[in-house]
Structures are given as structure tokens and as C-alpha cells.
Design a protein around this nucleic acid. Structure first.
Lengths: 245, 245
DNA sequence: TATTTATTGTCTTAATTATAGACAATAAAT
DNA sequence: ATTTATTGTCTATAATTAAGACAATAAATA
């Protein structure tokens, strides 16, 4: 984000990624606290190399952040307001980081390309939280997963980007079968239901939900899961590897 | 498109607009033959001024082409392959336009910015063909409306852009009620049905289609339309001005 | 003027899908 | 052996969608 040069990047275009995870029966978004004085919370973002597909750049940005390579990504919207620049953000940063940035004029010159108006391409990523390392910066305790219902204030228009990403995720949920990207390899039907309830923020009837999901024909039933609870054990499921089987 | 300078434009970003119309019971797309030797057919495209919203730029591009101001527009996809540049296109143009472009090296320098890799933001527009002037360039007879089922070969990846635009239009048709933007102010139910059949490329049962559309509650029934045909005259409808009424 | 013809608007019925209710199966605690 | 909480699946009901039927009608035809 603070690469002081735009060498090799396409100017005035950025990518912002809303990384969704699922934990504690709630949809979560990965937010990074920037390594600066002041409470600057941000989505995973970056720029596009001259010889790089936009999709590839988005993968790179999320991979660097998450340390995993198999990631579900969807491009969902372009944020293109003329007023969309980093000036207000940079000014706040300089105000609170006088020791880091010597003089205002020098800073403005160094980050000149960054002060430009930027068009941002929005992507959302769906990751299985349980398969990634706890995404804490050593320095920044506040970096991590935030409940979508209780997001902190983010820099620039990142809160709007999160809202639009959630809207798109909800839209696509039934057409593409992407929710399973938020779950571990194997899962129970109840976990699927709770995930759908978290994403769509509404309850489902257990009996009918199970039928609907099984009728999709994309799940493979595995052995029962040992829970230790004093009741019938649920089956584990996983996505069929191949639809032709 | 052939502005020889990028003065004031955001570099390496373009907008391409798929302008949809409806005529002869078929969905049509507006295609322009470029004012050059050779059969270069293109979508309506352009660039974004530094101080202009991306949405505003798209409106400007379509308005300049259509000569009308009330236009329905939707941003639908970003085309961002690294290989997406104009070099192959420019080379073909130069090959066929030796008198216009003196020397190859000079041309390449003049259009240097244009030879860059470009990221294009796709919009589709829905216009009422009957309310716009016949969009013929005086010089270019081939400029005009083309049946979506019989598109000519377009420059660069414009055929792919059309395909993706149609896909998005179909997706949005039921959620947003945008089809009426393709019809004149007043229309019969049969015309609505034929429009839906053209867009979705499948038949609808007349009785149930009429019920479905009327149940939306967005249409206002007007007087009967005189057809002169030896049968019952159909009602005219128009969109309700205000949903609260 | 009565009849015919083609199309429109709407009603009724059938089929399908979604929602709600019911209950046996079961894993461990009592 | 009984109790308890949860799971998987069945049946019954409601709602929606699709198919069939028919009267209304505008102008041509007899």
C-alpha cells in the first residue's frame, strides 16, 4: 500500500479485496490496521502490474495477505467517483505521523502518484478461516477478523465497498454455489445452514433446508461425526470432487 | 476514439458501452464502423476525464453517440487481461491506411499512449430505438443496429464484451425492471412479451405472462390501441410514474 | 345486418414447488 | 432401561407456476 513508487504499476487503478471468512456462526471480514500512528483500518488492497491480468493481481493481493493459494475470488464492482482520491486520507496520516514524514511538501511529492484520483476494482474473496493462520500482524493487534455486523470505521470508502460486496455475495449465493468456500473440507448440514443464515441474515427451516441442499446434488455424504453429545450424530459432507460422478 | 492525446484522460482505462435497442422483434446492438479504410466495427467507447465520475463518462459516451439524455446504464464487468491492448488493432489499421498514417514509427509515437495495455469497464445501455435518430454516419453505411444473433466481427475483444453484456442483462431482467427502457412510452402487452422472448430467447405462455407482468404492479393501463385488425384491440400500457400511487 | 375470424383478457384447473408439521432413529447421559 | 436432545426424512398443507378454456371484441365477410 505504501510503495513509494508506482514503478511498473498501472496508474490510478487499485484493487480492493473484501476477504470474507466464517467463524462463531458469523460472517467475518478481514481488516488490516495500517502500520502507522492513528487508527487506520483498511481492506486488503494493491495495484496492478503492467503485465498482469487484473484477476491475477487480485489473487496476488489476497494470497500475500492470507498465505494460501486456493482462493475463491469474484470481481463485483468498480468504484469510480471522481472524488475518490487518497488526499484526505494522506493528510490525516501526515497529521498523526509527523516523525515519519519529515515535511509536508516532500511527502506530497513522494506520494504524488498516490494522491491522484483512483478507480478501484472491487473483489470479494471467500476463505476457510480454519485453514489459514491467525492473520495478526505482530505489531498490529487490531488487525484481524471483524463481524460483518460490527465493522470498524475503515479508511476512504472501504465501508461502502464492504456493503456492496455483501450485497453481491448474497445475490450470487444461490446461482453459483460459492458458500462452501467458507467452510472446511468437511462439514455438517447444520453448519451449512448456520452459514446461510449468517450470510442472508434470516432463519431457515431445518427440514426444508436439508432437502434443498441435498437436492442440489453437489454434496457427498461421509461418515458420521463424533460429537460426544447425548443425541444422534450428524453426518459429515463434502463437495463432490467431480460432478460427473 | 482517435483523439491523438490522452491529455486530461485517465491513462490505460477505457469504457466500452454495449448499446441495446429493440426492433423487428429482435434485440439489437449499436455498432459503429470506424472512419478508416478496412472493416473496423466497434462498440461505443471512450475514456474518462480526470475530474469525471466513471458513471458520468459512460453517460457522456452514450449521449454523444445517441443524441438523447435519458439513458438507462448499468456497469456490468471489467475486462482486465494483461494482453488486452490495441497493438494488433493499430497494426491492422496502419496496414490498410498507409495514406493517412505517414510513417510507422511516427504513428507509433503519436499513439503511444493508445498502444498501452488498457483495462476496460463495460457498461450496457438500454435505449428506445423509436425515440432516437437513425444512427447512421453519413460516411459509414455499415454503422447501425445489428441483431444480437447475427453480430459482425468487431475489433479487439468487443464480441466478448457483447456476450457478457447480454448475460448480465438477462440476469438483471427479473430483479431490476429494466426491459421497459427498450420500449416506447406506451406499448401493448404483446410487445412486452415479444421483448422478453427476444432477450431471453425462449417463448412465454401469453396468459401467464400477462398475469405475471400485471402482478408486478408497475404498469398503468391506458386506452385501447387502434390496430385496424379484424379482432379485439389491445390495451396500451405505460410505466407508472410514481410507485406510491 | 348477421356471421366469421383472429386476437385479447381473464377465468378455472392441473402440476409443481415451497412451507409446515410429524415422527422414527440415535448417541450419550441418567 | 429410560430419558434427552438432535438428526434425517417422511407426509400434509399452502403457495406458486403452468396449462387449458372461454367470453369479449374489432373488423372483414357473407
Amino acid at each position: 500500500m505504501f510503495n513509494p513508487s508506482q514503478q511498473g504499476y498501472i496508474p490510478q487503478i487499485s484493487i480492493d479485496c473484501v476477504i470474507f471468512g466464517y467463524q462463531n456462526k458469523q460472517l467475518q471480514v478481514l481488516v488490516s490496521k495500517l502500520n502507522l500512528e492513528g487508527n487506520f483500518m483498511s481492506l486488503a488492497g494493491g495495484f496492478i502490474h503492467q503485465n498482469e491480468d487484473v484477476d491475477t493481481a487480485a489473487y496476488r493481493i489476497v494470497q500475500q495477505r492470507m498465505g494460501i493459494s486456493e482462493i475463491y475470488l469474484d470481481q463485483f464492482y468498480v468504484f469510480g467517483k471522481a472524488s475518490r482520491n487518497n488526499i484526505g486520507f494522506i493528510e490525516k496520516v501526515m497529521e498523526l505521523n509527523t516523525s515519519t514524514f519529515q515535511s509536508k511538501s516532500e511527502t506530497i511529492q513522494t506520494y504524488d502518484w498516490f494522491n491522484n484520483r483512483f478507480i478501484s476494482i472491487g473483489y470479494y474473496a471467500l476463505v476457510d478461516i480454519s485453514s489459514v493462520l491467525p492473520p495478526k500482524d505482530n505489531a498490529n493487534q487490531q488487525t484481524g477478523w471483524y463481524n460483518i455486523k460490527n465493522m470498524p470505521e475503515l479508511i476512504m470508502d472501504h465501508n461502502d465497498i464492504v456493503s456492496k460486496a455483501l450485497e453481491s455475495l448474497r445475490q450470487n449465493l444461490d446461482q453459483k454455489l460459492i458458500a462452501f468456500n467458507l467452510l472446511p473440507e468437511t462439514f455438517t448440514m447444520k453448519e451449512v445452514q448456520e452459514l446461510y443464515e449468517a450470510i442472508l441474515d434470516r432463519p431457515f427451516a431445518r427440514n426444508n433446508f436439508q432437502k434443498k441442499i441435498l437436492d442440489l446434488g453437489v454434496l457427498q455424504r461421509l461418515e458420521k461425526k463424533f460429537t460426544g453429545a447425548a443425541n444422534k450424530a450428524p453426518y459429515l459432507y463434502r463437495l463432490k470432487k467431480d460432478n460427473t460422478n
